[in-house]
C-alpha cells in the first residue's frame, strides 16, 4: 500500500446507472480516504447495492467514472479485482464444501500457492472463531457462522478495499454484535471498508464517515456527529393516549421547531428543538394549555433515524413501505 495515503481508496465522479427506465443512481459523487470504515446509509432501493456492484466491477456504470485503489473499475477491472474483497447480501459460500475448503478455494482462485492458500484458510478460520466448524460442511452452519465465513472469504487476499453489502441483514442481535467486532478488527488492520446498511445504528456504531443515499443520490455526508448536528439540537418526542390528540399536538409543536414528524400508528409526534434552557417545560405548558394529554415524553440526542427524517422528510421505515407498495 505504497501510494495508499496519497490517493483516495474510492473515488466516484458523477456515476449514474439506469436499468431500462429505472434510474438506480443519478449522479453519485464520493471520496473515501484510505483506512477508514465508510458507511453508505439508506433505505432499500436507494441505490447502495448498485453502487457497490459497480465498485466491485460486477456492473459497469451508465456514465461517470469510479476508481478503486486508484484503478478505473471499467478499464482496469482485472487489476481492481485483485485488490478488493466483496461480501454481498447473501453469504456466498459453497454449502457442500467445508469452511476450510471454501476459504482454500477462494485462496487458490486468488492464485495463492497451494500451501499458502491452506495456511491462510487455517488462520482465517481461527481469526473468525470457526475452529470447531472448520471441517464441517457450510450447510450445517448457522446464519451468523455463514456470514463470518463469507467475510473471511472476502479478505483471503488481504484486500486494500473491502465492500460489505448489508453484512448483518437477517442476523439475530447477538450475531450482529459479533460481526461488528470482526469488522472493527478489520478496520484496525488498515483495510478500507465500504459498508452499506439500512440500520442507522450500525452506521453510527461502525463508520467513521457516513454518506446518506436516497433515490440514487448522496443527500448528505459527514461523521455521525456532524449528521446529527444537522438535525439541530435535540429531539422531543411525545406519545399521546389517543389519536384525536395528534393533530392539536402537532400544531403546538410546530411553533417550537422544524416541521414535526407524526407517526400515527405509534401515536407519536416528534420535533427537533433548540437547546435553549426551559424549552421542554415551555412546550409541556403549551400542550397543557391546549388540552393535549401526554402519555409519555422523551427528550433525546437525535439518532440517525432523526437525521434521515430531517434529510428526507420520511422515516426510513416509511420508505420501505413505499417500496413495498410500489412493487405490488
Amino acid at each position: 500500500m505504497t501510494s495508499a495515503s496519497s490517493q483516495p481508496a474510492i473515488e466516484v465522479d458523477g456515476v449514474t446507472k439506469t436499468f431500462g427506465k429505472v434510474e438506480a443512481l443519478r449522479g453519485v459523487n464520493l471520496r473515501v480516504e484510505p483506512g477508514i470504515v465508510f458507511g453508505l446509509l439508506g433505505p432499500n432501493g436507494a441505490g447502495k447495492t448498485t453502487l457497490v456492484k459497480i465498485l466491485a466491477t460486477l456492473q459497469a456504470p451508465s456514465s461517470g467514472i469510479a476508481r478503486v485503489a486508484g484503478l478505473d473499475v471499467v478499464r482496469q477491472a482485472g487489476e481492481v479485482r485483485s485488490k478488493i474483497g466483496l461480501a454481498g447480501q447473501f453469504a456466498a459460500v459453497d454449502d457442500q464444501l467445508t469452511g476450510l475448503e471454501n476459504l482454500e478455494m477462494v485462496g487458490q482462485l486468488y492464485h495463492l500457492p497451494g500451501s499458502v492458500a491452506k495456511s491462510r484458510a487455517r488462520t482465517l478460520i481461527e481469526q473468525f472463531g470457526l475452529e470447531d466448524a472448520a471441517d464441517r460442511r457450510a450447510k450445517t452452519y448457522s446464519g451468523g457462522m455463514r456470514r463470518r465465513l463469507d467475510l473471511a472469504a472476502a479478505i483471503v487476499n488481504q484486500p486494500e478495499v473491502l465492500f460489505l453489502d448489508e453484512p448483518t441483514t437477517g442476523l439475530d442481535p447477538r450475531s450482529r454484535i459479533d460481526l461488528w467486532a470482526v469488522i472493527d478488527e478489520l478496520a484496525k488492520s488498515g483495510t478500507t471498508v465500504l459498508l452499506t446498511t439500512q440500520y442507522l445504528e450500525e452506521a453510527d456504531r461502525l463508520a467513521a464517515k457516513i454518506a446518506v443515499v436516497d433515490h440514487g443520490l448522496v443527500i448528505a455526508e459527514g461523521t455521525a456527529v456532524e449528521l446529527k448536528e444537522r438535525v439541530g439540537g435535540r429531539v422531543l418526542a411525545i406519545h399521546l393516549p389517543d389519536a384525536d390528540q395528534i393533530e392539536p399536538a402537532r400544531v403546538i409543536l410546530d411553533e417550537y421547531g422544524a416541521t414535526p414528524y407524526v407517526d400515527v400508528a405509534a401515536r407519536e409526534v416528534s420535533v427537533a428543538v433548540g437547546a435553549e434552557p426551559g424549552i421542554v417545560a415551555e412546550i409541556i405548558r403549551a400542550l397543557d394549555a391546549g388540552h393535549v394529554t401526554v402519555a409519555d415524553l422523551q427528550f433525546r440526542q437525535p439518532s440517525l433515524d432523526d437525521v434521515f427524517l430531517a434529510l428526507t422528510g420520511r422515516a426510513s421505515e416509511e420508505v420501505d413501505a413505499e417500496l413495498e407498495g410500489a412493487r405490488r
Binding site: R81, V93, D95, L109
Partner: peptide
C-alpha cells in the same frame, strides 16, 4: 441464486 457467482465475478479469475 446463492450469490456465489457474485463472489466468483469479483475475483481476478
Amino acid at each position: 441464486q446463492t450469490g456465489l457467482f457474485e463472489r466468483f465475478r469479483s475475483l481476478p479469475i
